[in-house]
Amino acid sequence: MQRVSMENQYDDDLNDQDDDYEEEARGPSKSQLKREKLALQSLAERMASMPRSALERLNLSEDTWVALDETPRIKDHRALGRHWKRIANLLVREDMEAVQALMDGAEAREREANARHHALERWRERMIAEGDSAVNAFVEECPTVDRQQLRTLVRNAQRDAERGKPDAPRKLFRFLRETIEEAED
Rank of each mutant, 00 (worst) to 15 (best):
A48K: 00
E125R: 10
D104M: 14
D95H: 12
Q149W: 00
R147M: 08
S61H: 13
E140Y: 06
N136T: 04
L43E: 02
A98T: 08
D146P: 02
R111M: 12
A157S: 14
L153C: 03
I74R: 03
L40R: 08
E121F: 08
A168K: 01
Q149Y: 00
L55M: 10
E130G: 03
W65I: 07
R52K: 13
E94K: 05
P72L: 09
R122I: 03
A157C: 07
H118R: 10
L55H: 00
E107A: 15
S49T: 04
R109M: 14
T152N: 15
W65A: 08
P51M: 12
P143C: 09
D104N: 15
R52L: 08
L153P: 01
W65Q: 09
M96C: 07
D95W: 10
D132A: 11
V154L: 05
E56S: 10
A137C: 05
Q158V: 03
A54L: 08
P72K: 06
R78Q: 15
N114I: 09
S61V: 04
M50E: 05
P51F: 13
A106D: 01
E62D: 13
C142R: 07
S53M: 08
D167K: 11
N156T: 03
L153N: 08
P143V: 03
A113M: 13
L60H: 02
F138M: 07
A157N: 04
A39E: 11
G164N: 04
Q41M: 15
S133W: 04
A48H: 02
T152W: 12
P166K: 15
R93E: 15
R82D: 11
M47V: 01
V135G: 00
P51K: 11
L153V: 01
H118G: 03
F138A: 07
A44M: 04
M47C: 05
G81D: 06
A137M: 06
R159N: 11
E112K: 13
R46H: 09
Q158T: 03
R159T: 06
M50N: 05
M47N: 04
S133R: 12
R116P: 00
A48Y: 03
R116E: 15
